[in-house]
């Protein structure tokens, strides 16, 4: 019995190649059948996401030529020559299992520690399990990988902190308000950055969106996209009283939101906190606004610095994660695969 991982990812192949090799959901079942027909192949799980296409294979014997046979099959299925360019990597036994554990934990992702991959691998495994493409070996290895993935996320800081401007904004909003389901979001200036940031907040359940822009038509357009309400730019102060988050990204050369504006707005809010996100350059919101109680102002530099800090903190966790993976591998897969031969 031998365990093999064969695949490409965002580090070894350009998106042009990855999109040609990717398998649509409807094609997976047939592909699994075809890979299983390869000599020595007992079990197969196919993981196909935007950043990777990987085959995890349980082999009857350590057939040295199986990689070539699988690549031949892949080349035919995807109409791509998979042998050239050195894009595919291949690992066996402990190395392959370690790689799977790292993938599930988000250590091999483009955004280090991201959690989406966990669900994607779980879904790929579920499909293979239901299609009868897995057996004792792959079941044990994949179940172990999910337990290890969960353990790494809870025991280390690998997923701690937000690593993009949008997710930092969401994280801060949640540190202020908790659940965003009761929060209203106002967008000042209908630029791309404010759209992306507001979308992140809406995706976490923000109750309402109000868009205000100097060009009312553009405000209407963005409001429709966000299922929100467009208002005239002169009315933003009045409506800000009921909002919880204001995302500002106008192209104004001066401060659009002054301390005097905020003092007036704050008086009418009965002590409710207000989160201001200024992603404009030059800045839209007077930095002195942050001196006011219950008002939390973050500009683009503050958000970017928090994202960078989180990225750095996650990178610092890699070594600890690898030690844990090594330990878990020996504990969970001893007897399932050869955990010592590939050290």
């Amino acid at each position: 019995m031998s365990f093999l991982c064969l695949g490409i990812n965002h580090r070894t192949a350009h998106v042009d190649l990855r999109e040609r090799l990717a398998f649509a959901e409807k094609d997976v079942e047939l592909a699994l059948q075809q890979f299983r027909d390869v000599d020595s192949v007992n079990e197969v799980v196919l993981v196909s996401t935007c950043n990777r296409v990987e085959l995890y294979v349980g082999l009857e014997n350590p057939n040295e030529g199986v990689e070539k046979a699988l690549l031949d099959r892949m080349s035919i299925m995807r109409d791509v020559d998979c042998h050239h360019g050195g894009h595919f990597y291949s690992m066996r036994n402990a190395d392959a299992a370690k790689h799977l554990f790292e993938v599930v934990a988000g250590l091999d992702s483009m955004v280090l520690g991201e959690t989406e991959i966990f669900g994607q691998v779980k879904e790929s495994y579920r499909r293979a399990l239901e299609g009868g493409s897995t057996g004792r070996q792959l079941n044990k290895i994949f179940q172990a990988s999910f337990s290890v993935g969960k353990r790494l996320r809870s025991r280390t800081g690998i997923q701690r902190g937000a690593t993009s401007i949008g997710s930092v904004a969401v994280e801060l909003a949640e540190r202020i308000f908790g659940d965003l389901k009761k929060s209203g979001v106002m967008i000042l200036g209908a630029g791309e950055m404010s759209r992306v940031t507001a979308k992140s907040l809406v995706s976490r359940g923000a109750k309402s969106v109000v868009v205000s822009n100097r060009s009312y038509d553009r405000a209407v357009e963005l409001a429709e996209e966000m299922h929100g309400e467009a208002i005239r730019f002169d009315d933003w102060q009045k409506r800000a009283v009921d909002m919880d988050v204001i995302v500002s990204s106008t192209s104004a050369p001066h401060h659009v939101v002054t301390k005097a504006d905020m003092i007036e707005i704050r008086k009418k809010r009965h002590g409710r906190p207000l989160f201001l996100i200024d992603i404009a350059v030059p800045r839209d919101i007077d930095p002195d606004v942050n001196d006011l109680d219950e008002i939390y102002l973050y500009d683009i530099d503050a958000l970017e610095s928090l994202a960078a800090e989180a990225r750095f903190a996650r990178e610092a966790q890699i070594a600890e994660c690898r030690v844990l993976i090594e330990k878990e591998l020996r504990q969970r897969l001893n007897g399932v695969i050869d955990v010592g031969n590939d050290e």
């Binding site: 701690r160 902190g161 801060l172 949640e174 540190r175 202020i176 308000f177 906190p273 503050a302 800090e309």
Partner: peptide, 22 residues
């Protein structure tokens, strides 16, 4: 937590303290 948010600082406690509104 208010200090963390005002000064744009994070620490291990920042991520585990409850939201200030709560």
């Amino acid at each position: 937590q208010n200090r963390h948010l005002k000064l744009h600082q994070t620490s291990p406690t920042f991520f585990v303290l409850p939201p200030i509104t709560k």
